Simulated scan of single mutants.
Amino acid sequence: MVDNVWAWEGGNPYLSTALQVVDVDPMADQSAVRTRANVRRRRIAHAADRFPLFGRTLTVAEINEAEERLGTPRGRLLAELLTHRPVTGDADPGELADLLDLLDTTGFFELAAGLGAQTAPRAVTDLHDTLDPRVLPAILPDPGARTFAPLLDDAAEPVR
């Protein structure tokens, strides 16, 4: 394993987590991981180019490594931390685009990037005066369910 799991060494670590390589949900148990890994290995052995992951052709060795990583508590936790929650679909893209335009016109992004030091106070004041905090929950997407897979010990048993 790498020393700094958050370092981008050779590519974006979010694009090929062990869960994505094996093609399982973060809530999948160890038997589901084994089953999906076997299915992926067979598919890769017969026609690897038909099953790319984000435009990259996988190898059987990569699937073996991903299955092995998901078999350890540390590897499983790392894969879960690198996996984004799916979008709930409740948000209206038009409303989110309006919010993006509002943030852009008030100079909020310049403030966040540290580029607009002279205009930052005015941008924050304009943004605060423009946004109604009672409306934001209806515009922003639902954060989704807050359930997590159980943390497993070295014997693949849930930690209590």
Rank of each mutant, 00 (worst) to 15 (best):
V5H: 12
V5M: 13
W6C: 07
A7T: 14
E9M: 09
G10W: 01
G10E: 01
G11Y: 05
G11V: 09
N12W: 06
S16Y: 12
Q20N: 04
V21L: 04
V22R: 05
V24I: 08
D25R: 12
D25E: 11
D25A: 05
M27G: 04
M27I: 03
A28L: 09
S31T: 11
S31I: 07
V33W: 01
T35Q: 12
R36P: 01
A37W: 05
N38T: 10
R40A: 09
R40C: 00
R41H: 07
R43G: 15
I44R: 08
H46V: 12
A47L: 06
A47P: 00
D49V: 13
F51D: 14
F51G: 13
F51C: 10
F54I: 12
G55V: 08
R56C: 07
T57P: 08
T57M: 10
T57A: 05
L58I: 02
A61W: 02
E62P: 13
E62C: 04
N64K: 13
E65D: 15
A66L: 01
R69C: 04
L70V: 02
G71R: 02
T72P: 08
G75H: 10
R76W: 03
R76C: 00
R76N: 09
L78T: 10
L78G: 09
A79Y: 01
A79P: 03
E80L: 15
T83D: 05
T88F: 07
T88D: 06
D90P: 13
A91V: 07
D92C: 07
G94A: 08
E95D: 15
E95S: 10
L96N: 06
L96Y: 05
L99F: 14
L100G: 05
D101Q: 11
D101Y: 07
L102K: 08
L102G: 00
L102C: 09
T105A: 13
T105Y: 07
T105F: 09
F108T: 00
L115S: 11
L115N: 10
G116N: 09
G116K: 00
G116L: 01
A117G: 04
A120N: 06
A120Y: 00
P121V: 02
P121K: 10
R122Y: 04
A123W: 00
T125Y: 12
T125I: 10
D126S: 12
H128A: 14
D129S: 10
D129A: 15
T130I: 02
T130D: 03
P133E: 08
R134A: 14
V135L: 11
A138F: 10
I139M: 06
I139A: 07
L140E: 05
P141T: 01
P141Y: 09
D142C: 02
P143I: 04
G144E: 06
T147S: 08
A149Y: 02
L151Y: 02
A155Y: 00
A155W: 00
E157S: 07
P158E: 03
